[in-house]
């Protein structure tokens, strides 16, 4: 249940274990996220970063552990997952816009079908967020007519139209041409400034330094190290973190 007084803790993950068949993808992961906190998750390929954030809206089910999102215990089953998904927006590496719908329709679909708000209101909300991500003039185009950076900003707007309290980003700039990375990162920085709770898988270290409250390093399904950007980049404790940071620089 969502409580009237917003809990200070946004996400609680306790002793998470996840397997893909026999492969142990998440090992005893513990993570608490405060309301409004901005977390950047990094780590080598295959370390479980995507898997971790995808368990928060149950795109990936877990086998062991407990996840509570905004006071709703996801792992308790029932309709809790629906409530959580309504509260959690997600942005993917490949944008995943619906190609057969216009930009406006992309943004209105979930509010209409899931929140069941009136059409005029859904459209007003969609236009508001398209303006926020600085592409109000593209509303009637189809995704294929937009550049990658524009598509990713639409994807952010589409998620925001559900008025989520938490936003998950899975390498949102990795599929973009270098000249488009900045426009997407700027949009995310704006969002961070507004106090959105954000979990962001990214290797954009400039972004991490600028907005992250905490940087988390994962390797082989475990959280190996975490700390403030200053501590994390300035004085990494773990050897594997150091090796990783050397690689991406």
């Amino acid at each position: 249940m969502t409580t009237a007084t917003a809990p200070e803790t946004s996400i609680v993950m306790q002793d998470i274990n996840k397997w893909y068949g026999a492969y142990h993808a998440l090992r005893n992961v513990n993570l608490n996220v405060r309301r409004g906190e901005r977390i950047v998750i990094c780590g080598p390929s295959g370390s479980g970063k995507s898997t971790l954030i995808r368990t928060i809206n149950q795109l990936e089910p877990i086998q062991e552990g407990k996840i509570v999102v905004d006071g709703i215990e996801l792992t308790a089953g029932g309709h809790n997952v629906d409530e959580v998904r309504r509260d959690v927006g997600m942005v993917f590496q490949q944008f995943n816009l619906f190609p057969h719908l216009t930009i406006l329709q992309n943004c209105m679909l979930a509010p209409l079908k899931v929140r069941k708000i009136p059409k005029a209101e859904a459209e007003a909300t969609a236009r508001k967020f398209l303006t926020r991500v600085r592409i109000p003039e593209q509303a009637d185009k189809y995704p294929a007519q937009l550049s990658g950076g524009q598509q990713q900003r639409v994807a952010i707007a589409r998620a925001l139209c559900m008025q989520p309290r938490i936003m998950l980003f899975d390498e949102p700039t990795s599929a973009l041409d270098p000249e488009m990375v900045k426009e997407v990162l700027d949009t995310m920085v704006d969002l961070a400034k507004e106090g959105m709770t954000m979990l962001c898988v990214t290797h954009e270290m400039g972004f991490a330094r600028a907005v992250a409250d905490r940087v988390i390093f994962m390797d082989q399904g475990q959280i190996i190290e975490e700390g403030s950007p200053e501590a994390f980049f300035g004085n990494p404790q773990n050897e594997r973190t150091r090796a990783f940071l050397k690689q991406i620089h």
Binding site: V88, N96, A110
Partner: peptide, 12 residues
């Protein structure tokens, strides 16, 4: 990804 995006948006 289409199914995942729709699911993440809460669509049944």
């Amino acid at each position: 990804g289409q199914r995942e995006a729709a699911t993440a948006l809460g669509l049944h």
